[in-house]
Amino acid sequence: MKEFMLFIRSDEDNPLANFSLKEQQKHVEKVSAYIQELVKSGKMKSAQPLESEGSVVSLKNGSLVDGPYNETKEVISGYYHLMADDLQEAIRIAKADPRFEDGNWKIEVRQIMKVEGIN
C-alpha cells in the first residue's frame, strides 16, 4: 500500500456556491456517500476541508513576510489522504469522485514519499 495526497482544487472558493439548496444537497449526498465508502474500505485515511482564508509565508528581499493567501488564483479547498496500491489506483479513485459532476473541480494526485522517523 502506498499513500497519496489528493488536493481538491477549483478556480473559486466553491463552484457550488450559487447552486440552489436542492442541488447543493444532492451534491453533498453524492460526495459524502463516495467518501464514506472509501473510509469503510480503508482507502481513505482522512479527508479535510481547508478554510478559505490563510496566509502565505515567503522570503522577500532577504526577510520573511506573511502575505494574504492569494484567493484570486486557483484555491485548494481540501484534501484527501488516500491509501492505494499504485498511482493508477489513486487516479481511478479520484476520477470516481462525484464532485466532478457538479462544477469545474480539479484533483491533483500526488504520491507521498514516506519519511521514516516522524510520527
Binding site: 498511482l87 487516479i91 476520477k95 469545474n104 473541480w105 480539479k106 519519511v115 516522524i118
Partner: peptide
C-alpha cells in the same frame, strides 16, 4: 504529520462534467 510528495503526479479536472487527465 509532515511528508514530502513525489514530484510526479496527475491532475484530473472536470469542465462542465467532462473529466480529463494530464501529467503534472
Amino acid at each position: 504529520d509532515a511528508q514530502p510528495l513525489a514530484m510526479e503526479g496527475e491532475l484530473i479536472s472536470a469542465k462542465d462534467g467532462q473529466v480529463s487527465q494530464k501529467k503534472l
